Simulated assay, not measured.
Amino acid sequence: MSQKEFADKVGLKEQQIQWHEANDFAGVSFDRILDFMEALNAKFFIKKTVIGVDSRNTSSLFSGRRRKETNNAVKLK
């Protein structure tokens, strides 16, 4: 796929794709990464691993933030 085709798929200009590539995609938002992955039909998985902490009690990891658990995922508010 050319940079032009890729740019069209993610709704950017070709020059923006070139700039991201030249900067090793540094500073790209997670949402933009998801756009890139969707355009490439790529999939990824995230596995949460907390080392040295009792996984049944991770409340100390989120001090100062309210946390809401949904479907075994933690969302910070």
Score class of each variant (00 low, 15 high):
residue 13 K to M: 12
residue 3 Q to M: 03
residue 47 K to W: 00
residue 52 G to P: 07
residue 58 T to E: 01
residue 48 K to G: 02
residue 9 K to I: 02
residue 20 H to Q: 11
residue 69 E to R: 13
residue 68 K to H: 13
residue 75 K to H: 06
residue 23 N to C: 00
residue 58 T to G: 03
residue 54 D to V: 04
residue 39 A to Y: 07
residue 21 E to C: 03
residue 25 F to S: 12
residue 76 L to V: 09
residue 18 Q to D: 09
residue 40 L to G: 09
residue 19 W to N: 08
residue 54 D to R: 14
residue 44 F to N: 08
residue 25 F to M: 15
residue 75 K to A: 07
residue 53 V to K: 15
residue 69 E to I: 14
residue 49 T to P: 09
residue 51 I to R: 04
residue 2 S to G: 13
residue 1 M to E: 09
residue 72 N to T: 11
residue 73 A to M: 08
residue 40 L to T: 06
residue 68 K to S: 12
residue 1 M to I: 15
residue 8 D to E: 13
residue 63 S to I: 00
residue 72 N to H: 11
residue 62 F to Y: 13
residue 40 L to I: 06
residue 66 R to K: 13
residue 45 F to G: 07
residue 40 L to E: 11
residue 17 I to T: 09
residue 17 I to C: 08
residue 43 K to Q: 14
residue 53 V to N: 14
residue 8 D to Y: 11
residue 28 V to N: 00
residue 52 G to W: 11
residue 32 R to N: 09
residue 51 I to S: 10
residue 57 N to D: 14
residue 26 A to E: 12
residue 3 Q to H: 10
residue 24 D to R: 06
residue 40 L to K: 11
residue 43 K to C: 07
residue 10 V to C: 12
residue 8 D to T: 13
residue 22 A to E: 10
residue 45 F to I: 11
residue 21 E to W: 05
residue 32 R to K: 11
residue 50 V to F: 06
residue 77 K to T: 15
residue 35 D to I: 02
residue 61 L to K: 05
residue 38 E to A: 07
residue 8 D to C: 10
residue 36 F to H: 06
residue 42 A to T: 14
residue 16 Q to C: 03
residue 46 I to N: 00
residue 15 Q to T: 14
residue 36 F to N: 01
residue 68 K to I: 13
residue 46 I to P: 00
residue 26 A to V: 09
residue 72 N to V: 00
residue 19 W to L: 04
residue 77 K to R: 08
residue 34 L to W: 03
residue 3 Q to I: 01
residue 55 S to Q: 14
residue 47 K to S: 06
residue 60 S to P: 02
residue 52 G to C: 09
residue 9 K to A: 09
residue 18 Q to C: 02
residue 50 V to T: 14
residue 73 A to L: 08
residue 52 G to N: 09
residue 35 D to F: 03
residue 9 K to L: 04
residue 3 Q to Y: 12
residue 65 R to M: 01
residue 72 N to R: 10
residue 14 E to Y: 10
residue 33 I to W: 10
residue 39 A to F: 02
residue 38 E to R: 09
residue 18 Q to Y: 00
residue 24 D to P: 00
residue 73 A to V: 02
residue 15 Q to A: 15
residue 7 A to Y: 06
residue 3 Q to D: 09
residue 72 N to I: 01
residue 20 H to T: 01
residue 56 R to E: 15
residue 7 A to V: 11
residue 35 D to M: 10
residue 43 K to L: 06
residue 63 S to R: 05
residue 26 A to Q: 13
